[in-house]
Structure formats: C-alpha cells, structure tokens
Amino acid sequence: MPKYAMVIDQSRCVGCMACVVACKRENHVPPEQYRTRVLEMVNGEFPRLKSEMRSELCNHCDHAPCVTVCPTGASHKEDDGTVQIDRRKCVGCKACIAACPYNARYINEEHGYADKCSFCQHRLRAGKKPACVATCIGQSRIFGDIDDPNSEVSRMLRDNSYRVLKKAAGTRPNVYYINQFPKKS
C-alpha cells in the first residue's frame, strides 16, 4: 500500500490560484468554500522586502486530531495514509473543524457534512494525481508515494531540507514544504 504525501515547492508557487479553482471544479465545492488556499506573506520595508508564497490544504496527518475527536467515525484514516470523511456518518457536530490546527475543514453548505481535501481520492483510484497537482502552473505541488524511495516526493525530501506546518502541534502532517523563499542566486 502506498503512503501518499505532497511536497510543495514554495519558490515555484506564483500565486496564480489555478489549484484553488481546479480543486473546486473537480470536487464540486460550493461557492465561496475552498479545500485549498494560497497565502502570500510579505515582510520588510520598502525597498527591502521578502515574500513567502504558500499553498495550504489538508495535511492528512498521521496523528490527525480530527479523526480523534470524531464521535461517529466519519473522519477516518485510510490505509493509503489519507484522512477521509464518510459523509453518511457525519452528523455535522463540527468538532473536527475545531480540532484541526490547519483550519483545513469546513461545513459543505450545500449538504451539511464536514468536508475537506481528500487528495482527490477518486482521481488517485483512477491512477491520476490530485487536480491541484495536475494543473499547478509552477509545478510547485508534487505528489506521490512517500514509501517508495524512487518516487519524486521521496527524492524531493531527500534532496531538500523541508518543514511541515505547525510541527509542534504533533500532528505529523503528510504535506511537506521546501524552498520557503526563492533562491537568491
């Protein structure tokens, strides 16, 4: 069984929002709701500025607080390492939304269940990459099997120093970030 993970090369993100719209169309996310977002952070004073571009999504944590708090088992961890939601079982108590340190979840306004990024599980099953990865203009998002040493994600994590978001929260995320800032050659 693979263990899916995403590596995000922040230096290659140009903030074009292709991922955001691709995700929404692929997963029928209701208007004004999102499974992925893009942050742009600029520090410094004119003209000495520094910018970080970062796309965020569900981290599919190994120690997922959303799974722990779910009272019905709707939120669960699957064998492929992804965190998924069984919509039939969700009662909409919103505990998982409170539990997620990454604010990755929302209540689907059209259907009422808690919702979030699924790593495009339906696409993975068809052998395709998640929609955001497939369309990422800067090829900033890289996806694959972290248990396979030959996969691109494994190679990326070997060759680069990486970080995860809110490491101290102890969630052990499966979304890794490399190149926080563009290389200044």
């Binding site: 694959g144 099997d145 396979d148 030959n150 996969s151 691109e152 994600v153």
Partner: peptide, 12 residues
Amino acid sequence: AMSAGGTLLAET
C-alpha cells in the same frame, strides 16, 4: 515517468 513514480499513480 513522473507520474509512474508513485507505485499506484500510473496515469495514462
């Protein structure tokens, strides 16, 4: 080749 990296991700 990039897609085939993951064991299951073999996109045609």
